[in-house]
Each structure stands twice: as C-alpha cells, then as structure tokens.
C-alpha cells in the first residue's frame, strides 16, 4: 500500500515536472539554447498565481490560466529582447545570458515580493479524492489534469497543425526551413512562448502544493535539466517519460528512505544515464 501510494505520488509529481521539462526541451530543440532562466520563469508562474488568488480573489483555475498567459508574454519579451539575437554556435553566450536573466528576475522578485515563503490557499486546498483506493490531494489531481491536457494539446499542435509542424521542422533542419519559406525567428518565438507558458503553468499549478517564494525555481531548474538529459536533448516524448521516472524515483527515495535523499535519487538516475546512455532514453539525433 505504501509503495503504491508513493508510486502514485511520484507519477503525479512527474506529470507536473513534465510541463517544465517539455518546455525546456522545446526551447532547446528550436533555439539550441539551454535556458538557465527556466526555473525563474516557473517561479514567476507560481508567484503570479499566489498574487491573483491571494490579493485579487481569483479562483484557482482562472488564476492558473492567467498566470500561464502572463508568463508566456514575459517569455516572448525575453525572446525578442535577448534570445533571438543569439546566433548559431554561440552556445556559451546563451548559457551566460539566460543565467544572468535568471538572476536578475530572481532578485527583482525578492525585491518586490519578499523572500518569505508563503502558503497559497485555494478552493481546492486541504481536500482529498479517492483514486483506486488511494488517497490523493485534490489540488495535485487537478495539477495532473492540467499537465495531461496541456501535453496532449501540445502533441496535437505539434503533429496536426502547420504552426506546430513548423516548430518541429525548424528544430530538425534550419536550412530546409528557410528553403520552404519559414522565418526562423518567428517560428522560434512561437516555441519560446509555448515553452515558457508550460513552465509558468507548472509553477502556477504547483503553487498550492508547495510554499511559494522567489528562490523556489533553482532546485526545479536542475530537475528540469535532469529530465532533458534523461529524455534526450530536444526530445519531447523522452522528456515526458523522464519526468515520470524522476517523479517516481524521488517519491520512492523520500518515502522508503529519507526526504534528504529525494534530490540525490533524481541526480543518481541522471548520472547513470550520462554514464551508460549519454544520448538519453531515445538515442542520438531524435528530435521533437
């Protein structure tokens, strides 16, 4: 019973991590930029929801939606001002730039919001549901619902619409994209908006699960990196599977061992992957 509960909790957290990992992977796939500001973008989503629910009286669902939209707009501004000016081959510039952006955002949030952790109380908090005989917090179940709907919608957009297929195409061959008349800077902008919206949504739906504070993005960022590495750089289905593996690993490590082992379990999985399958679960060269 304990193991089943731990696995279920792990799958729940994994589904939400998938939103973050898929967003990071999408941005890397198209721009070949490792977005070190992704953790702070996730934080923005959480703080936006805390503000909308706590100060403006929004319900949880509209607040999550508005938070994701707001973060997507912020992501687009970042793209126009900074990311789109990074040229092919300027890999290190992308890392340093996004690291700098992340630090600036984090400090700005501390300045305006304060560093004290806060609890976000929504209409769904402190309520449980029964799932196959196991008790699950309602807020987590709703968060999983968001994750499943968002990732399914993303999959449909990427495979069924010209808009989404262009994102996949650009990630596979930039010259071919130019030859068929794409404007890479426009298509990449779409990918950044989707990727940051997913991170913002993850922050928003996790806000009532954890305490909210401006430093909450850093540990999540490194988990997102682990997800992208385990799933294979730029590989979206890989990122989803890796997220579930990470969620279950940390849940089992925390439940059967100690809470202090949770993060270690995540990074042990990543180290093992780098050692034995460095191209990730789905191998080299597989893209979105």
């Amino acid at each position: 019973m304990l193991v089943s509960t731990l696995i279920l909790n792990g799958l729940v957290m994994g589904a939400i991590y998938a939103l973050i990992g898929v967003g990071l992977s999408l941005i890397f796939g198209v721009l070949e930029i490792v977005n070190f500001a992704h953790g702070q973008i996730y934080t923005l989503g959480a703080l936006a929801l805390a503000l909308l629910v706590g100060h403006f009286g929004f319900g949880f669902l509209p607040a999550a939606f508005v938070s994701a939209l707001g973060v997507a707009a912020f992501g687009y501004i970042l793209y126009v001002l900074f990311l789109q000016h990074i040229r092919k081959g300027e890999f290190e510039r992308g890392i340093i730039l996004t690291l700098g952006i992340g630090i600036v955002v984090q400090n700005a949030l501390i300045y305006f919001y304060g560093a004290t952790p806060q609890i976000v109380d929504t209409e769904f908090s402190f309520r449980d549901i029964n799932f196959l005989g196991l008790r699950v917090e309602m807020i987590k179940a709703i968060a999983v619902g968001f994750a499943i709907v968002s990732i399914t919608a993303l999959h449909l957009v990427l495979t069924r619409t010209r808009f989404g297929m262009a994102i996949r195409a650009l990630s596979q061959n930039r010259e071919a994209a130019l030859v068929v008349g794409m404007r890479p800077e426009v298509v990449a902008g779409h990918a950044v908006v989707i990727g940051t919206a997913l991170a913002g949504l993850a922050g928003a739906v996790l806000a009532p699960v954890f305490t909210v504070h401006p430093l909450m993005g850093a540990p999540i960022l490194f988990k997102a990196f682990a997800i992208v590495i385990i799933g294979g750089l730029g590989h979206l289905p890989g990122a989803v599977v890796a997220s579930l593996i990470i969620g279950v690993s940390e849940s089992l490590a925390g439940g059967l061992g100690s809470a202090s082992l949770q993060d270690a379990a995540v990074f042990l999985v990543m180290i093992a992957m780098l050692q034995f399958r460095p191209m990730g679960l789905f191998g080299k060269g597989v893209r979105i």
Partner: peptide, 10 residues
Amino acid sequence: PQGRCNFPQM
C-alpha cells in the same frame, strides 16, 4: 540546395 535539405524525423 546541395546535401540533405528535408526534415528527417518527419
């Protein structure tokens, strides 16, 4: 263009 100019995973 010369060389492969398609989207190989599509």
